[in-house]
Design a protein around this nucleic acid. Structure first.
Length: 272
DNA sequence: TTAGCCCTGAGA
DNA sequence: TCTCAGGGCTAA
């Protein structure tokens, strides 16, 4: 569930706490969703300093002083937090990083294990296939490029927005919310959407994501800030999670359909 | 391009 | 006990 705004917020909160900190020890659970060598992670991290944090799509990159990068994808239920005490008997705890001279350790918890962890030795040996093929960031892609990448596509726009090779970082919530704001039906195919409409969708995506970032993201189910606080953008959702309720704009009942294997909420009157 | 799978907890 | 939620990968 953590999408671009949630991941972006986590990085902002993590940065002041881990940047320039030296890693003392690392623990990995036996069933952590790790891509690559377990021993390498356990050997390579201790002694390294966190040089920086970056976001790529929904991935968090933790850059180490030696040039290596630890990549974290939170999947649906991944949570990052700090604590002075190690949670005992938590079967969902997958990574612990302790820092020199710091009482608090850094933890990764992931109930459904849809998340991913991977260590790369630099920019060029990324093992995560999704990260290697990541499309442009929706906040950076310009209108022309956005339209070009979608125009003439013959599958539902909703599925295309979720395709991380085309644009990276949009998930179910922000796809539904952006389509509502642009007045576009999630099942509509780009070949049948005017250029002006696609331009409006491009703007809606950027507006929605920026607003969500300012709100600290959407907290649904598991997403929490590193200090355990919740984001507030869920209070502004127009369609996501509102099926059966009235549209705030026209009072038509919000409907839910399955498109590209994902639930899609929309207003049948506002979105055509 | 799409269906099915992974995984677990919540709710019917 | 069954079904559903979902991101991303694989196979058809």
């Amino acid at each position: 569930m953590p999408e671009l705004p949630e991941v972006g917020n986590l990085i902002l909160q993590l940065r002041p706490r881990v940047q320039s900190q030296k890693i003392k020890s690392v623990w990995l659970s036996a069933n952590a969703s790790l891509v690559g060598s377990r021993n390498e992670v356990l050997k390579a991290l201790p002694g390294q300093t966190i040089a920086g944090l970056e976001r790529r799509g929904k991935y968090i990159g933790m850059r180490l002083s030696g040039g290596r990068i630890l990549w974290i994808h939170l999947g649906m239920t991944g949570q990052l937090f700090f604590s002075e005490t190690v949670p005992q008997d938590d079967p969902h705890l997958h990574l612990t990083v302790a820092f020199q001279g710091l009482r608090e350790s850094f933890f990764l918890r992931d109930v459904r294990r849809f998340g991913k962890l991977s260590l790369s030795s630099g920019e060029h040996d990324i093992l995560l296939p999704g990260l290697k093929q990541l499309g442009p960031d929706p906040l950076e892609i310009d209108e022309d490029e956005f339209i070009r990448s979608l125009k003439n596509r013959r599958s539902a726009i909703k599925g295309l927005l979720l395709n991380q090779k085309l644009v990276s970082g949009i998930g179910n919530i922000y796809a539904d919310e952006s389509l509502f704001r642009a007045g576009v039906h999630p099942g509509r195919k780009p070949v049948r959407i005017t250029k002006a409409r696609l331009a409006r969708l491009h703007a809606s995506i950027q507006e929605t994501l920026k607003e969500a970032i300012d709100c600290g993201g959407s907290s649904i189910d598991d997403y929490r800030h590193v200090d355990g606080c919740q984001g507030s953008f869920q209070e502004k959702h127009q369609v996501y999670g509102r099926e059966g309720q009235e549209c705030f704009s026209c009072r038509t009942q919000i409907r839910m359909v399955r498109i590209a294997g994902r639930s899609s909420s929309f207003c049948p009157a506002c979105q055509t």
